[in-house]
Amino acid sequence: MADAPPVQGLAKTPADFLKSIKGKPVIVKLNSGVDYRGVLACLDGYMNIAMEQTEEYVNGQLKNKYGDAFIRGNNVLYISTIKQ
C-alpha cells in the first residue's frame, strides 16, 4: 500500500487524521465528560477504540487504570492528540 502523505495545507479528512495518530498518546473524551488518556492501538468506522496503558479521569481526577481498553464508539465525543 503506497499511502500518499497528506499534502500540507489541503484538507485532512478524519481518515487521514486517524492514520496519523495510531500508536500515539491521545485523549479520548466521552459525552459523559469522562476522559481516557493512553496510547491509541486502533479504531474502526464506528469510532470504536482500542487503547493501551489507559488512564481514566473523572473531573480531572485519575480514577482507574486499564492495561488494554475497548471503548464503544457511540460514547466518544472527540479524540485529541496530546501536545508534546
Binding site: L30, S32, Y36, T54, Y66, G67, D68, A69, F70, I71, R72, N74, N75
Partner: peptide, 13 residues
C-alpha cells in the same frame, strides 16, 4: 445489550 456498553477491559496480559 451492546448499546449500554461504555468500556471493556480484558484481563491484564
Amino acid at each position: 445489550r451492546g448499546d449500554g456498553v461504555i468500556l471493556i477491559s480484558p484481563p491484564l496480559r
